[in-house]
Design a protein around this nucleic acid. Structure first.
Length: 572
DNA sequence: GCCGTTTTCGGCCCGACTGTTTTCAGTCG
């Protein structure tokens, strides 16, 4: 029985929820939440940490108590502390916390006064008018709760970044058109380029404030106005996406941008630093006593606490503050650093466009080279290539390269890694290619050991260049297959092959934390579009965002290399 | 529950908005 980091994180989150309902010390609760996040974000299995020299207590926020609880979970698969809590508070009660405006105090009150343990019981009580009878509640609250349950708002709904970008860009354009608006910027997890976004936080400088507030709450896609104060308003769009708007003065813009970009753990850590220097940071600026000493720009906020500006993608309290203090922040990869793309399809398989049009679109996207990597024969539903069809495409690419200028097509394949770890095409045809991209498209259900061995064996093939979408996950749709990613990374290092960061908005696979681990191990990452049409090169920006969250520099990314250097690397 | 160029004990980030109040608690970000 393998216990994964995510299992431990889930247990700690539930402990935090139940402790919250028990009205425990808030800092103790935060300790569990922080630990859940720390373990969930680890770039290696917790077992490896236990075995390492520094051990669990070497992790930030993990002391001897939590280390003991982690070891218990690893050894037994469960936590006796959580089991005890579940006997005190019915576990379903914590589900009520997901409903907007219901926090631990109100949930506890409803549970104790009315015996409400489930969302269904909550809804019935709201319909029966029993909630308004509880002290501290009223008719308006009861109605809010009833509507929230009926609208299914308890479910956390996060949008994929690329989808959120469509809503965000339209709304920003709308706000920029309002008279008196000087600046508009989307902060929050959107600015940090997280792979999914729970809501949008928009920051505005405008005078007068009232016009832009009215334009915001009156936006044509508004389903509901959730809050509406003089400087702050929240709406829910028809799409279900919540958007918060904050209007600030130009003097406070940097402080507000910094504040609303987050992440929360990052902000908390920096504010603590500021406190140590006798400073206070809030969304209006950095203050010494009553006096504002910074806040107009983000740089000034960082400077006030003795730090260089930290890129938003790094602000997760995962070591960026220490790196900034040491002057060791990475110079993150940028979209313009990409010289090529190593994963794309054409009409020959499941793509929509011709070889030539894909080549021209890649050139228009600023790329110098593009690898054509069709599916192989096993993927019949994608009309995968057999050796003969691939041979014809190789010839076609050779011919096309003679007439193309400004872009070079590379000959490749996205070859299926079969269940036994062999590749889906014969060695003789793979030998004719510039690169071989290996991918798992079947048997996602293999047990961890077999799945890992399967991919390790594929990497051993002498033609193997890089592993496509290494975890196989589709965001919110398909869980990653169970594989020992740390071993894949170590093996890639010893074999001299690479991992892909697939930039398709539904994949964004490799995860940021594994990017960090790959970088640490010295394994190069290829940021690929996996384009199936000429429009898909636009997705590279999301891959770059994910890479930046993984601390990658241009140096860590294979396809930042100029063509000549890349070809040398591929022929190694 | 964690943590230490304030500290091994006593701290632990900060403010806006809402609803139910009659000065504020709860929730949220």
């Amino acid at each position: 029985m393998a216990v994964h980091n995510a299992d431990i994180a889930a247990i700690f989150s539930e402990i935090a929820d139940l402790l919250e309902i028990e009205n425990a010390n808030p800092f103790r609760i935060r300790a569990y939440r922080n630990a859940a996040r720390t373990v969930g974000d680890l770039g290696q299995d917790v077992q490896a940490i236990i075995a390492s020299e520094r051990g669990l207590t070497g992790l930030p926020g993990i002391g001897s108590d939590l280390a003991g609880k982690i070891r218990e979970i690893v050894d037994t698969g469960k936590s006796s502390f959580l089991d005890g809590l579940r006997r005190e508070v019915p576990p379903a009660v914590s589900e009520l916390l997901r409903i907007p405006n219901l926090g631990p105090k109100r949930v506890r009150l409803l549970w104790q006064e009315l015996g409400i343990e489930t969302v269904e019981q909550l809804h019935r009580a709201a319909c029966d008018g029993r909630i308004r009878e509880v002290p501290g509640f009223g008719e308006k609250f009861e109605e809010k709760i009833r509507l929230a349950v009926e609208a299914n708002l308890g479910q956390e709904r996060r949008l994929k970044l690329a989808i959120a970008a469509q809503y965000a860009e339209a709304l920003v354009a709308h706000l920029k058109g309002v008279a008196g608006v000087e600046r508009v910027e989307v902060a929050g997890s959107y600015r940090r380029q997280r792979e999914t976004v729970g809501d949008l936080d928009i920051l505005v400088v405008a005078s007068p404030r009232s016009k832009v507030m009215a334009a915001f709450t009156g936006y044509e896609e508004v389903a509901e106005v959730l809050a509406n104060g003089p400087t702050r308003a929240s709406i829910r769009l028809n799409s279900g996406l919540q958007v918060d708007l904050r209007v600030v003065s130009g003097e406070s813009y940097g402080a507000a941008l910094y504040y609303f970009t987050g992440s929360k753990p990052h902000n908390i850590a920096v504010r603590r630093m500021a406190q140590g220097k006798g400073l206070k940071i809030n969304e209006y600026g950095v203050f010494r006593g009553e006096q504002r000493i910074a806040g107009k720009t983000e740089e000034s906020v960082f400077q006030a606490v003795g730090l260089p500006w930290i890129p938003p993608e790094l602000r997760e309290n995962r070591g960026e503050i220490a790196a900034a203090q040491a002057g060791a922040l990475p110079r993150l990869v940028e979209l313009k650093d990409l010289r090529g793309d190593l994963h794309a399809h054409t009409r020959a398989t499941d793509g929509h466009d011709t070889l030539e049009n894909m080549a021209r679109a890649a050139a228009a996207a600023g790329l110098d080279y593009l690898a054509i990597t069709e599916h192989s024969r096993r993927l019949a539903m994608a009309h995968g290539l057999d050796a003969e069809r691939l041979a014809r495409q190789i010839d076609e690419i050779d011919r096309l390269n003679e007439s193309l200028s400004g872009i070079r097509l590379l000959k490749g394949i996205e070859v299926d890694i079969l269940e036994d770890g062999s590749l889906d095409l014969p060695d003789s045809i793979l030998a004719r290619l510039d690169l071989v991209v290996g991918a798992v498209h079947s048997r996602f259900d293999l047990a961890r050991a077999r799945q890992t061995e399967r991919i390790l064996k594929a990497m051993d093939d002498r033609h193997f260049t890089l592993l496509a979408h290494p975890s196989g996950r589709l965001i919110d749709e398909r869980a990653p297959y169970d594989v020992d990613m740390a071993r894949l990374i170590a093996h890639a290092k010893s074999r001299g092959c690479c991992l892909e960061l697939n930039a398709h908005p539904e994949r964004l696979d490799l995860l940021d934390t594994w990017c960090m681990a790959a970088k640490e191990a010295g394994v190069l990452i290829a940021i690929d579009s996996d384009a199936h049409s000429v429009r898909d090169f636009a997705n590279l920006r999301f891959g770059v965002g994910q890479a930046r969250r993984g601390w990658l520099t241009a140096e860590n990314v294979l396809n930042t290399r100029p063509l000549a250097e890349l070809l040398k690397l591929l022929r190694h």
